[in-house]
Design a protein around this nucleic acid. Structure first.
Lengths: 340, 340
DNA sequence: TTGTAGGCGTTATCAT
DNA sequence: ATGATAACGCCTACAA
């Protein structure tokens, strides 16, 4: 019958106390904790026992100050409540947690200055590595950052030591979406573009054009509307399209949010989806499956993105070369598209 | 012409170096930094200059270890990608940031054990205070926690020293929603309830019943369907309702997500909103305004919630007694409801 | 293999 | 008002 007071992870049991309780030196305890050096099994057992008995929990703060790892990684996202990146954060949190790491989130709000500030804060907090979800930072700054600590970026293609870039195949996704519409017999396919400062937006436009071209359908500038990736820009784009009297039977929006907006505009103008016009989005947000009608879209796996990013960073941290790649885009056919 | 190398927030300029450069002791620099004691203007100027010149940035890690504040606060949310709490996080981040604090987010996934783990982690990271967004932790644990450091909880009514509880008036919100429907002439109003383990869910049910009663409309158990706060449970509830052949002309869902789900089910069964049935939700999620049709709902100000919580914690941290209260629920009339 | 000593960058406690 | 000096809890040479 053990009478161990058992581990109350509370109070301030220090490494030193563990050392004393187990009759070894603090360094030995530290070594055991970090696997820094070989220690005799005998002492190791004694220490492990003491740790359990006392309910010792290492103080991460002290650990960092002393030059060890913080077991935390910084995550620069753009908005903590982003419908797309939000699930990526969840993925990051998930794999980091499983590895004993803690994420520190900071929002850059699509502003290079703010992003830099986030990074500075994160570094002052001594994170072991940083994940940057897209954003507006220059590749240059990222490269420089990677000289200081491991970095994983998404939404870019760039190579550098200690830097892993995860890039989704936007071009192919857009091609797929457009091709789907083409297959259904649509020829007058409008495209609601994303903010052109995003490389993603440009790629998606290219994919749209490529699909058109491959099908021998002439590209019509009048059918591509500017958008800003949010719902309102989607409704405005659709309204403008309708008002232009340029004939169209389908809309491909560069992201789901704009697709939602466009659907709403159509609804208000008395046009039915998919009876009158087909719509396909891009991202496969959580809401897409429950939209009315459920939205056909390109699945972009935010969750996967987060998991991969975290995985890659963990590998970098372990001095391995990440091999992780994002899954290829998939078309999810729901109810917003139909044959002409 | 100043030739100051100017502040590169980089490298390791220490407080000690600032002290030396300005000819004062480290303690004095620390005092100036923290406003811990009065310092002569003369020295203050010298130190400020040195700080600017050297680009000194205090090391938060060392600061904490030495017993100072970490200028960070822990936030236990339930899912980092929650559509509702997500915007609350944004609000928290916003006001914390303005005050020079950094939020540390952790997700409890509606699981008391996990929440407790989050709290332990957060505490080991030496946060100055903790915000708990609803969750399943016992009031008891929260009270105990508040003895250790300032705590702000949402979704509860409980009083304790160094603990501030922010509670939304769910009852009134539900009453408002139901009353709206009643006003439009509806009498057969179905209610899709939330998970009964949430006090919020219970309050909303009460509000629904109270409104009915006040209008002299008999409460019919057959019109209240169980739900779990997510979209799928909304579609299932609506399907069950339709299949039950119990007549109804309106649905009040205990949250927007279930309202979306119910709308979808209605759509699939060929019932139109609001022509055939009116729907009102609860929360006013970001997507509600762009749903089809735009959803009439109760605005629950996630953003406000976050801001208030952070504000309250800041006050607690400053040894003040928070007075912050959440705004009263507001009915947002959009296009999913219409007169019978 | 193990222990000792010094230091990480700050703040707090005493003095002065 | 200001300055030494001792922690804070851990890690990492260096020594044994």
């Amino acid at each position: 019958m053990k009478s161990s007071k058992s581990a109350r992870p509370s109070s301030k049991v220090t490494l030193g106390m563990v050392a004393e309780a187990s009759g070894v030196s603090p360094s030995t305890v530290s070594r055991i904790l970090n696997g820094t050096a070989v220690v005799s099994q005998e002492k190791k057992d004694a220490v492990d026992r003491a740790i359990a008995e006392l309910g010792f929990v290492p103080n991460p703060i002290a650990r960092v100050l002393a030059g060890g790892r913080s077991l935390s990684v910084g995550v620069v996202t753009q908005a903590i409540d982003s419908p797309y990146y939000g699930v990526a954060l969840r993925g990051i949190e998930e794999v980091l947690d499983a590895a004993g790491f803690v994420p520190l989130f900071a929002s850059g709000h699509w502003n290079a200055k703010e992003e830099q500030r986030c990074i500075d804060t994160l570094r002052s907090r001594r994170v072991d590595g940083i994940i940057v979800l897209t954003g507006r930072l220059s590749d240059e700054s990222l490269r420089k950052l990677a000289k200081e600590l491991p970095v994983v970026v998404t939404g870019r293609t760039l190579k550098a030591p200690s830097l892993h870039a995860l890039n989704f195949n936007d071009f192919e996704g857009a091609r797929l979406a457009t091709h789907h519409l083409l297959t259904l017999g649509h020829r007058k396919i409008a495209f609601i573009a994303g903010d052109p400062v995003h490389p993603d937006a440009q790629e998606r436009l290219k994919g749209y054009r490529a699909a058109l071209e491959a099908a021998g359908v002439k590209y019509k500038p009048a059918l591509v509307l500017p958008g800003l990736f949010h719902e309102d820009s989607g409704v405005m784009a659709a309204e403008r399209l309708i008002d232009s009297r340029e004939p169209f039977t389908a809309i491909f929006a560069a992201n789901d949010q704009m697709a939602f907006g466009a659907s709403l505009a159509l609804y208000r103008r008395g046009l039915r989806v998919p009876e009158d016009v087909s719509i396909v989005g891009f991202d496969d947000l959580a809401g897409a499956a429950h939209a009315i009608p459920p939205l056909t879209t390109i699945h972009q796996a935010g969750l996967e993105l987060g998991r991969c990013a975290a995985q890659a960073l963990l590998e970098l941290l372990a001095d391995k070369t990440p091999t992780t790649q994002l899954p290829e885009p998939r078309l999810i056919i729901r109810s917003s598209t139909r044959a002409l």
